[in-house]
Design a protein around this nucleic acid. Sequence first.
DNA 1: CAAGATTGAAGTGTCAATCTTA
DNA 2: TAAGATTGACACTTCAATCTTG
Lengths: 153, 153
Amino acid sequence: VTSNTRDTRWLTDEEQAAWRGLLRMYAQITTELNRQLIQSDLSLQDYGVLVHLSEAPDGQRRPFELGEALGIEKTRLSHHLTRLQRRGLVVRRPCPTDRRGWLVRITTAGRRLLTEAAPGHVAAVREGFIDRLTPRQLQSILEVSEAVSSPGR
Amino acid sequence: VTSNTRDTRWLTDEEQAAWRGLLRMYAQITTELNRQLIQSDLSLQDYGVLVHLSEAPDGQRRPFELGEALGIEKTRLSHHLTRLQRRGLVVRRPCPTDRRGWLVRITTAGRRLLTEAAPGHVAAVREGFIDRLTPRQLQSILEVSEAVSSPGR
DNA sequence: CAAGATTGAAGTGTCAATCTTA
DNA sequence: TAAGATTGACACTTCAATCTTG
């Protein structure tokens, strides 16, 4: 289907170290952040959804917009929204301009919970990630994320 | 517990863009890689465990070593090893030098599957990640992962 | 008591199938 | 037909509790 073993361009030591480092870092930091957020009864995914909604006009967005912003797929988001709605943190209503779709809105309770959680979460992101990096490294992360997750996807 | 809203050091636009970019990138690329690997009946986590075992002396490692290398916690790894063992890709045996623990070894079947999957997986990692980055950006990723996931954890 | 590791229950994510409208 | 979105079954992850040895 693709290439066979002989003509595979294997990763160099540097490439391998960077790639494995990324996987390891992500696993560790998300574990930490989830543990911290659970104090506010939120997961990192919950937080992401609520933040994006809270920044939208009227606190509303289409699911597919949310999915693109978060980099997750529609099925996962749909289940997630169902859970958030069951908890009263978001509501769904039919989209007036596209009858295939919906609008998701953050509720007052959702905003309240987000506001309560934000200081602790931001502090944890700073301590575990941001404040460990130089401005140059931060800039690199942004560049990398754009190079990797923007174009043909 | 931590800080209140007033004295929180919120993220700057650059910091926020970098952090959100990382989360989004990770979600997208792992989705892709999992889809590719499933052709070989492996997940990205399966692949990680098998690779680390395959590189170890005698193809063996202690679970806690694996967990540290992958950045995941013992509970998750334990369940994971149980599934891999059920599929015949690894085996567990009591550790002779520490009677609290185990040694996990990759089986012949595990090595065979890994060998089959590797070319396609490496090609996907190249196409989706490595080959989109400059050497300088790769270097930054490694630095960042070390700054974030090494010290006090 | 801490470290290495496992287990079961409950929560979360993925795949395939399905539905409706553009 | 493709796009937006949902659902159910199954697979994976997390938490809390537990067990055994250092």
